[in-house]
């Protein structure tokens, strides 16, 4: 479905057309999954995509029918992505949830590309700590042993690195 059709379906949905709305959400789902597959660990993709579907529903009145649909969709998807990056930072703990260290799949290649783009802008120590704990699923203690750093330093590096990643994502959305 082209963007114009998405826009027409959204306008119909604002008027209460459930059929057009359902078709629109079904069309958006693969786009959202692909968007997050390039930006988040695979285990988080479905949660993020479903959260955006619910957000689109709750905030549909903020769509201005006079404007294109794409930028509105991207703005919401991007906001939720940055929110997830922040949440990753805030939930930093020694114990990493199982889903963070989920088995890899083909789609995670795109995710890794965007994460690599963000992480290449960090200090090496920050990028390494994030890679070991947030992507490979090591505990902070294990990462500290592997890096030869203290646990506190690894935590600080992850915290600062994730904060910088969310700032970079917010400041330069078009480059990512």
């Amino acid at each position: 479905m082209a963007e114009d059709q998405w826009r027409n379906s959204m306008i119909a949905a604002l008027r209460g057309d459930a059929r057009a709305y359902r078709a629109l959400l079904l069309e958006l789902t693969p786009w959202l999954r692909s968007y997050y597959a390039k930006r988040l660990p695979m285990a988080m993709v479905d949660d993020a995509a479903q959260e955006v579907l619910m957000t689109l529903h709750a905030k549909r009145h903020t769509y201005d029918p006079a404007k294109p649909f794409g930028p509105w969709l991207v703005a919401i998807a991007r906001y939720k992505w940055i929110d997830r990056l922040r949440a990753m930072k805030e939930t930093l703990s020694d114990e990493i949830p199982e889903e963070i260290a989920a088995p890899d799949t083909g789609e995670s290649f795109g995710s890794a590309q965007t994460l690599d783009a963000l992480m290449s802008r960090l200090k090496p120590a920050q990028a390494e700590a994030i890679r070991l704990v947030k992507i490979e699923g090591l505990t902070v203690k294990e990462a500290a042993e592997r890096l030869g750093q203290t646990i506190a330093l690894v935590k600080v590096n992850i915290h600062r690195g994730l904060r910088q990643m969310s700032e970079l994502a917010q400041a330069e959305p078009h480059e990512l």
Partner: peptide, 21 residues
């Protein structure tokens, strides 16, 4: 929850809204 049932639920819950001005 899978996508289909979430979308069905959202479509069922749909009511007309006035866009924010």
């Amino acid at each position: 929850m899978n996508y289909e049932s979430l979308i069905d639920q959202l479509a069922e819950d749909l009511a007309p809204v006035r866009p924010r001005r």
